[in-house]
C-alpha cells in the first residue's frame, strides 16, 4: 500500500514537471528561431476571374503573327525547340532528336485538323489557309484532370487546368484522355534544346507531361498572357462568368465555335471565324 502510494506520487510529480515544462520549452524554441510560419501575401495587382476564357479572332492572324505568338509563349516558358543547335560543350552526349517527340504549347493547325468534325468539301476556300491557333482548352469538364492518378493535373477554382511537374509520374494517361492533342511529354531532358533559359518559369525534367498553363504565373502578377501580348489584339482573355468582361462582349458580337463541342468537355477557348 505504502509502496504504491509513493510510486503514484513520484509519477504524478514527474508528470506535473512535464506539463509545466512543455510550454516553457516551446516558448524558448520558438523564441530562438523567430516566427516559423511563412507569410502568405496576395498581390493586389493580380488578375482574377470566376472562370478564365479566351477568344481567338482567326481573321486577325496570319502565318507571321502565328509564329510570333508561338515563339512568345515557348521562349518564355522554356519550351524546348528540337531544331535548336545543341551546345556540344555544355551537353556533350546529346543524341539525335526524334521530331515526333516534340513539345508544343500553342501552335498553328489547318482548319480541318483543328476542327476535324467540321470537315467539309465545299468549305470556303480561305479557311483552308488560315492558321488556327490551338492550345489547351482549359475545359470545364477536363478529361485529363479526371484521368490523372496523382492529381498532378488539376482544375483551379478559376477554371485554369494546371500541372504540378514535380508530382507527375509520367504515366501519360492525360495524353490519352485529351481529345485535343494539347499535351506533350518530355521524352528526354529538354534543357539542351532551350536557347536561353528564362528564369521566370521553371524548366522541366525528362519524364513529365506539360502543356499551356494559361500563363497563370503572369495573371498572378497582373500581367496578360504572353500569347495575348504578342497577338496584336487577335487573342483576348477574360472572365467568362462576368457579362461585362471583354471576352463576353466579343462572344455577344460574333459567331464563335469551340473545338469538339459535342464531347461535353466545355472548352474555354472560343474561335471567331
Amino acid at each position: 500500500m505504502e509502496q504504491s502510494r509513493r510510486r503514484f506520487l513520484k509519477v504524478a510529480g514527474i508528470a506535473a514537471i512535464g506539463l509545466g515544462a512543455a510550454p516553457a520549452i516551446n516558448f524558448a524554441a520558438s523564441d530562438s528561431h523567430g516566427p516559423g510560419a511563412a507569410a502568405k501575401v496576395k498581390n493586389e495587382a493580380a488578375l482574377h476571374a470566376e472562370r478564365w476564357g479566351m477568344v481567338i479572332d482567326i481573321k486577325k492572324i496570319d502565318d507571321t503573327l502565328a509564329r510570333k505568338i508561338s515563339m512568345a509563349c515557348h521562349l518564355h516558358h522554356n519550351v524546348p525547340d528540337f531544331t535548336h543547335e545543341v551546345d556540344t560543350q555544355l551537353y556533350p552526349k546529346t543524341r539525335p532528336v526524334n521530331h515526333k517527340q516534340e513539345i508544343k504549347w500553342i501552335w498553328k493547325e489547318k482548319f480541318h485538323y483543328a476542327f476535324p468534325d467540321k470537315e467539309d468539301e465545299f468549305l470556303n476556300e480561305k479557311f483552308h489557309h488560315l492558321p488556327f491557333m490551338v492550345l489547351c482548352n482549359h475545359c470545364k469538364n477536363a478529361p485529363c484532370v479526371q484521368a490523372c492518378p496523382t492529381q498532378a493535373t488539376f482544375s483551379r477554382e478559376d477554371g485554369i487546368v494546371m500541372m504540378d511537374y514535380h508530382r507527375c509520374i509520367g504515366c501519360r494517361f492525360c495524353m490519352a484522355a485529351c481529345p485535343y492533342g494539347s499535351r506533350s511529354f518530355n521524352f528526354r531532358d529538354p534543357r539542351p534544346f532551350i536557347d536561353e533559359t528564362h528564369p521566370d518559369f521553371p524548366t522541366r525534367s525528362k519524364g513529365v507531361v506539360e502543356k499551356c498553363n494559361f500563363c497563370a504565373e503572369r495573371l498572378a502578377k497582373g500581367e496578360q498572357p504572353h500569347c495575348v501580348e504578342a497577338s496584336e489584339g487577335a487573342i483576348v482573355v477574360g472572365d467568362l462568368e462576368d457579362p461585362e468582361s471583354d471576352v463576353r462582349k466579343l462572344l455577344k458580337e460574333h459567331y464563335t465555335i469551340r473545338r469538339k463541342q459535342s464531347l461535353g468537355t466545355e472548352p474555354s477557348v472560343y474561335y471567331i471565324v
Binding site: P149, T150, R167, I169
Partner: peptide, 17 residues
C-alpha cells in the same frame, strides 16, 4: 516517365482516375 515517383499514386489517391 518518372518511375521513382511511382508511390505518388498511393500518396495522392485519386478515386476519379
Amino acid at each position: 516517365g518518372q518511375p521513382v515517383r511511382m508511390l505518388n499514386v498511393l500518396l495522392y489517391p485519386s478515386p476519379k482516375s
